[in-house]
């Protein structure tokens, strides 16, 4: 690692940019299974940054590289100004990491887990209590219960407490809401907003597109490549075409018919609707679509002009970006 010219090569100021990743690439199985290719991103201080992508996109690999658990094949990264390779020791005492898989001791109680991780960081639960109080209060009634016997949502809260116990300046949360019920997920995101207000920089990954709007900025990732980095509203705002939601009595035949129509650019199922974009996007094409559907003898045809969601943007970016690799493997 060329430490001397590191600052010159990494343009952002590490003072207010706690996470800087530049041209990170990583592959598994001796290069045969690429997981990340040329990923660069920066996260500003106090930002809630979302890494959005499907399973196997490379989210966990990027997290493991940034939290010093894995070495990248190429590229550089700095956390709070520390190099992930050289200064891994400093990074380990300044970041909090919550792995996607519940990684606390299931045979220890809630309190014992917390005390143990506090001790590993050379601190005590009492001194850090202010930071975790809001979250800890919710699991406090179960403090003598073994961690393995907690519900999914409680486990996540405990894991978050353990990740926060040493008052980290940067928090890495790898799919914290996967497998958690809707209510707990909403509560969890509220907690993240509170932590953000306390000045903690948060990098969170999720496969749920609807959670993306809760982030300040998001990066869309697919097959180890970043598709776009921007604020959620910018990403949906720059959707380049008019998006129509179409519904009919027989949704499956409608999907087949629309896909075979040369006017249609893209058509995919979205809940009970089909989301459609056309090749020529001038003016309102609702009537055009309705006519085509009627010509194909479809009943109860409804066509609406809708605002694109993050998921629409993601699908568009993922299908238009040429894929350079096969499906990468998640470790």
């Amino acid at each position: 690692m060329k430490k001397n010219n590191l600052y010159t090569s990494l343009s952002p100021d590490p003072g207010d940019t706690p996470i800087i990743a530049e041209h990170i690439s990583k592959s598994y199985n001796k290069g045969t299974a690429p997981a990340l290719s040329n990923v660069s991103l920066t996260v500003k201080k106090g930002e809630l940054f979302g890494l959005i992508g499907p399973d196997g996109a490379g989210k966990t690999t990027l997290f493991r590289i940034l939290t010093t658990l894995l070495l990248a094949d190429s590229g550089q990264a700095r956390i709070s100004g520390y190099d992930v390779v050289k200064d891994f020791k400093q990074i380990r005492s300044t970041v909090g990491y919550m792995p996607g898989k519940f990684s606390l001791y299931q045979d220890l109680t809630v309190q014992e887990n917390l005390t143990f991780f506090a001790a590993l960081f050379g601190t005590e639960v009492a001194t850090q209590y202010e930071l975790i109080r809001d979250i800890y209060d919710q699991i406090e009634p179960f403090k003598n219960r073994r961690a393995g016997k907690l519900s999914g949502g409680m486990k996540q809260k405990l894991a978050l407490c353990c990740a926060l116990i040493h008052k980290p300046s940067v928090l890495f949360l790898d799919e914290p809401t996967t497998g958690v019920d809707v209510v707990s997920r909403r509560e969890f995101w509220e907690m993240l907003q509170k932590l953000k207000r306390q000045g903690i920089t948060i990098l969170v990954s999720t496969p749920y597109m609807e959670e993306a709007v809760l982030c300040d900025r998001i990066a869309l990732i697919q097959n180890g490549q970043l598709l776009n980095i921007d604020t959620p509203s910018q990403i949906t705002g720059t959707f380049p075409a008019a998006l129509y939601a179409v519904k009919a009595a027989s949704i499956y035949t409608l999907l087949k018919d629309l896909r075979s129509w040369n006017q249609v650019e893209s058509c995919y199922a979205f809940g009970e609707w089909l989301h459609v974009t056309l090749r020529q996007h001038t003016g309102d094409a609702r009537a055009l679509i309705r006519e085509y559907a009627a010509a194909k003898a479809h009943q109860q045809v409804t066509v609406q002009l809708i605002a694109p969601t993050i998921e629409d943007s993601f699908i568009r970016l993922a299908t238009t970006n040429p894929l350079q690799h096969g499906t990468p493997n998640q470790p």
Partner: peptide, 13 residues
Amino acid sequence: EIGTIEQINVTPI
């Protein structure tokens, strides 16, 4: 196997 070593490894232990 349980993955706890992952959590241990990110501590300054």
